[in-house]
């Protein structure tokens, strides 16, 4: 398999074949990152498309100083945060977008009883809502860590912060998520 950085260097020389390989490799994680950042299929599609077009257009300025993955998620995280800012200014609520686009949690395959499955499904739905209520930066950080599997150091590179700042950001995001899940279950004691 050809190395991402080599491919990107070829892209910087205008090679559309190398670009296609990179896009085929990364469009799914990028799309899911945006889906979880925006809660909207339509917005996730637009942002994914825009990210790859921007990446090609600015490829000539690419310098392989960090891994390709952190380079890519740096662009994605910036786009997700500025998108959230614009949406807040427009006053569009994430939760309306969530229900309109039918962004459903995973299939309810956990637990043998239908009631348990339904309860699990509701819990996941509550989790998604809680996730979309987080500030955009915290949401990006938790998704990069848990969803995309980046290390604290990589997230620090992506977000232009120190490792302790990232640790603290993720911890605060988890406190809010835990608080909302407890509230959902009627145990709002945090």
């Amino acid at each position: 398999m050809r190395d991402d950085v080599d491919l990107m260097l070829q892209v910087s020389r205008g090679d559309t074949g190398a670009f296609r390989i990179l896009m085929e490799r990364y469009q799914k994680p990028v799309y899911n990152f945006f889906l979880r950042s925006t809660g909207s299929i339509e917005d996730a599609e637009d942002l994914t498309q825009q990210l790859f077009i921007n990446m090609f257009r600015s490829a000539r300025r690419y310098r392989p100083s960090s891994s390709f993955k952190t380079y890519l998620y740096r662009i994605a995280a910036n786009m997700a945060v500025s998108f959230a800012r614009k949406r807040r200014r427009r006053g569009t609520g994430s939760l309306e977008v969530l229900s309109e686009d039918g962004f459903e949690p995973a299939s309810n395959g956990v637990g043998g009883m239908p009631d348990e499955a339904a309860e699990r499904g509701e819990l996941k739905g509550a989790y998604v809502e809680a996730l979309l209520r987080l500030p955009a930066g915290q949401r990006a950080a938790i998704e990069l860590r848990v969803g995309r599997g980046l290390s604290y150091r990589e997230i620090a590179e992506v977000m232009g912060k120190s490792v302790p700042a990232v640790e603290s950001m993720i911890s605060r995001a988890r406190e809010k998520l835990a608080h909302d899940l407890r509230a959902f279950r009627g145990k709002d004691e945090l």
């Binding site: 559309t16 469009q27 899911n32 498309q49 949690p105 819990l123 996941k124 998604v128 938790i142 848990v146």
Partner: peptide
């Protein structure tokens, strides 16, 4: 632990093929 499990169980959707086609 529950929040982490919920996050891991979020679906990984496949992007529509139209995105790649439009970008290319």
């Amino acid at each position: 632990l529950e929040t982490a499990a919920c996050h891991r169980e979020l679906p990984e959707a496949g992007p529509p093929p139209a995105i790649l086609a439009a970008v290319m």
